Simulated assay, not measured.
Amino acid sequence: MNRWLTYFLVFFVMVLWGLNVVMLKLLVTSFPPVTMTALRIFVAGFVVLLVLLLLKTFRQLTATEWKYVILAAIFGVLGHHFFLSIGLTMTSASNAVLILALLPLTTSLLAILLLGDMLTRWRGFGIFLGLIGVCTIVLFGEGGLAGIRTGDGVIFLAMMIQALSFVYIKKATDTLDAKQVTGMMLLIGSLLLFVTSFIIEPNGLASMGDKALWIWWVFVISAVFATGLGHIIYNQAIHQLGTGETAIFNNLVPFFGLLFSALFLGEAIALAQIAGLLFIVAGVILGTGHVDAWMQKRKRRFDQVG
């Protein structure tokens, strides 16, 4: 695939993922949230595995690979998407997208704590900037500390659980194709979500049939394009561009999330949210090791010249 075409496709996926937070807000207010999420994730997983079968890249898993895929599904799908769907019923899409923007930084911190990644000066400073961003949003946002919603805490928990799932995803993808890991964890996680929905929303599936056609189109765009095909494109970009270069595009997601929250949901964007976003983006760039990698690459280049 042409490099510039890859850039365009990843950029388009970031637009979709920013829009997806808005779509999820609409979906959880129109459908039973857990049941809808289970069905949406199942459709996304089916799309990913269908692509894998067409490409003939699907293979049998070892016992160890099954363990890591199942753990990734429990944390990354069941835990993350359960709390995300519940949290979105109790807070704004703009707040949710800002909290979710902490995911790369949280993942980097967990990699330092659990996987033995090195804590450099720049990464530590990046984590510090990310915390300033959160404090800015919380302390100077609408209503200050009194304005914090329960949903914000639930979204934060969803973000933390997803970051933890990346530890198991990393272990699974050491030996297994990332697209297969994604498809399988989506399908396994969706089945676990269905079991959960039957307990807390026993009439969930029956109540989904009488909705307007437009909301079902939102469902299809979110499931098939944003979640299913979006992850395939993103994984392919990682293969072609590398993890670091592809991850930088993630900083566009909160920007588009805020933009679409204002355009489609009429949510007011506060100055504190914009300031907090800038701190978080700067923190992500520094805290996830991009600056360290760039400096090391530059040093090697100078050493070769010298």
Rank of each mutant, 00 (worst) to 15 (best):
I199E: 08
V47L: 06
L145D: 09
I127A: 11
V253Y: 04
Q180F: 05
G18M: 01
G257M: 06
E267P: 05
F264L: 14
L109F: 10
A270E: 11
F198S: 12
L286P: 05
G144E: 05
L26Y: 11
A272L: 03
Q296G: 10
L78Y: 03
T196F: 15
F42A: 13
L115Q: 15
N235A: 14
A226I: 03
A293E: 14
T64Q: 15
F156A: 15
M184G: 04
I127E: 02
Y234D: 01
A293Q: 13
T136W: 03
T173W: 01
A247S: 15
L139T: 10
V305G: 06
I280R: 07
M160Y: 04
S261F: 06
L252K: 08
L213Y: 15
R3L: 12
S165M: 14
G183D: 02
W216M: 01
A223L: 07
A44N: 02
K299C: 02
V51S: 06
L114H: 11
A262Y: 15
V305W: 12
M118Q: 15
V51K: 00
I269P: 05
I86Q: 05
F256M: 04
T120D: 03
V10H: 06
Q162D: 10
S30K: 08
I215D: 04
M36Y: 04
A111F: 09
I215V: 12
L265V: 12
K56P: 03
V28R: 01
I280T: 01
H239S: 14
T62A: 11
M14E: 13
I70F: 13
I86W: 10
G87Q: 01
A282N: 10
E267H: 09
G87K: 06
L286N: 12
Q273W: 05
W217H: 11
L78Q: 01
S94A: 14
N250Y: 14
N251V: 09
L129E: 07
R40S: 06
G189D: 04
P202I: 10
L100Q: 13
R59W: 03
